[in-house]
Simulated assay, not measured.
Amino acid sequence: MMGVGGGATMDDVQHRQFEDFARARRPGLLRVARRLCAGGGTDPEDLVQETLERAYRHFDRLVGENAGAVSVWLSTTLSNRFLDHCRRRRTEVLGAPALRVVQGDATGEPVPVERWEQVTRDDFLRAIDQLRPTHLRDAYRLHASGLRYRAIAQQLRAPEGTVGRWLSEARQALRELLTPGETPREGRAGS
């Protein structure tokens, strides 16, 4: 079989297509990864690289999808990689009792496990799927994929301010779904 484009093989063409794909999506993925990794412990660059490596392995499927589906796939993959890192870090801490002593506060009590460390990837994905009305779920997924309010507003055909409200409601609903019975810190008096 003759090469495509004057000697280039199909693999070369697909590799160049993926490089363009990765170059276009990397900045948005990096923005999301930096937000996720703001607490430290995980390098946002590593998360993006791992996400793009997975995208490369599934590129033949991603090429045929619409931009929204690709964005959701990438953001879900990035979130899953982040949760995997959190679980690995948690396992390392729980597996090394001596570290718990070092992490204790001045009274010698161990530092409590963060709420988000107790949430499994499946719990998180189920909670996103449960967001209602559906515009909350759609807005959250698009925002998690790295889109800004304006782009989300255009895609969902809603004003930017409405998108902001939807995202706030989606985050609140996720908090309630993932940590039932807890009062959010931001709304309490005296906080």
Score class of each variant (00 low, 15 high):
E114L: 12
R88I: 12
L52K: 00
A139R: 04
D123T: 02
L62W: 02
A55K: 04
S75V: 11
V72S: 09
R87M: 10
L94I: 13
D84W: 06
R126Y: 10
V63Q: 15
E114F: 06
E114Y: 03
G95W: 06
Q154S: 10
Y149I: 09
R121G: 08
L99H: 02
D43R: 08
P97Q: 05
R81P: 06
T51W: 02
Q103I: 08
R137H: 06
V70C: 06
C86L: 12
Q155D: 07
A153N: 04
R126P: 01
V113T: 15
E50C: 00
T107P: 11
Q154F: 02
P133Q: 02
F59E: 02
R89T: 14
T77D: 10
R100G: 00
N66K: 09
G95K: 13
L83G: 01
W116E: 13
F82C: 03
R87V: 13
I152R: 00
L78W: 08
L83H: 00
E109S: 09
L99F: 00
L74E: 03
E92R: 15
F59C: 06
L136D: 05
E109P: 05
F59N: 04
L62E: 05
T107W: 12
Q155S: 00
E65S: 13
V101P: 02
P97N: 02
E45G: 14
A127P: 05
L83K: 09
T76H: 10
R126M: 12
S145M: 06
F82T: 06
L142P: 02
Q118N: 15
A96E: 08
H85V: 05
R89K: 15
R115Q: 06
T51E: 03
V70G: 07
S79M: 10
V119Q: 08
D123Q: 11
G95S: 13
R100K: 09
Y56V: 04
S145T: 03
L94D: 10
T51I: 02
Q130V: 03
V48I: 10
D43A: 13
Y56M: 05
P97W: 03
V70S: 05
G108R: 14
L62N: 05
V48W: 01
P112G: 13
G64D: 15
V102K: 14
G146H: 07
V93D: 05
D60G: 11
G146A: 10
D84A: 15
R54F: 04
V119L: 10
G108Q: 14
R148T: 01
E53I: 06
E53F: 05
Y149W: 11
F82A: 05
A127C: 13
L74T: 03
L78N: 05
Q130N: 12
P112C: 05
I128W: 00
R54M: 09
E50P: 01
R61W: 07
D60E: 15
G68C: 10
V72L: 14
I128V: 15
R132S: 00
H85Q: 11
V93I: 13
R132L: 04
T107Y: 11
L62D: 09
A67Q: 12
V101W: 09
A67R: 13
C86R: 09
R100W: 08
R150K: 13
L78R: 01
L83N: 00
